[in-house]
Amino acid sequence: MAFWVSQTLNALALGGLLFMLASGFSLIFGLMRVANLAHGALFMLGAYVGLALVKAGFGFWTAAATTAVLVGVLGGVIERTLLRHLAGRTLPQVLLTLGLAFIIADACLMTWGGDPMRLPPPPELAGAVRFGDVVFPRYRLFVIFASAAVALGLWLLVERTRAGAMIRAAVDDVGMARAIGVSASTLFTAVFCLGTALAGLGGVIGGPILSVYPSLDQDMLPLALLVVILGGAGSLAGAFVGAYIIGFIYTFGQVLVPDLAYVILFLPMVAVLAVAPQGLFGRRLG
């Protein structure tokens, strides 16, 4: 029993991290029709920058906030200077974001070396808590609640604020949103910053759980893609549900059939694509 409870909590923690990664990807995809393949690399960059800041003597929280801002600004620069010129052209966008992913990943390898490193959790969250016979790291509980808080915050932003109304309008029809006075240009940059900042924040938050190593981006990006394929591109609810489905399947897969943990991820994808090609919560995006 203790095994199932603690693995369920692990799955929730991984699902939360995947939500932070995939929600940004999905928001960008829904608004700009861009599959940002550099998202995994930005997640890893976030983890490395956070680690460097912690090592430089900053507190964990300061490091996390600074990293989110830095990665978000980097994302904004990428959108403004490079991606903007390629609007509507799928293949060049894919090549560009993939190229950036390689550059970022190799720059991380060059700067921080190839050894896996551990990002220490903040001291107030070190140690474990006990519920009966279940012992669970306090930090993972924090991740579960923090990601839920991020999800709630994003939902409030998109559904309950003026900026969110603009985003929803532009996702539905950019031309019409422009015509009624929404500045799509500003909105695109803002959402790209927000999405990449979430990836960077996810990297720092995930660092103590996943540890920080050179192929972290290649491990995380496919999981994020699966989340988006499952949940539907451009949908926050889809990213939320998809992230926890993948979190559960991957966590239990790793424990029960460690050799085939990756292969069983194939099953939910096939099942969902067979029923709904655009994902569980997705709409057909033009």
């Binding site: 599959a35 943990a261 694509l273």
Partner: peptide, 18 residues
């Protein structure tokens, strides 16, 4: 389109993982 890009990448990664 982009869905195809993501699905093919995910399929390849799954086999790579195996």
């Amino acid at each position: 389109g982009l869905g195809f890009v993501m699905i093919t990448m995910a399929l390849c990664q799954i086999v790579w993982g195996a």
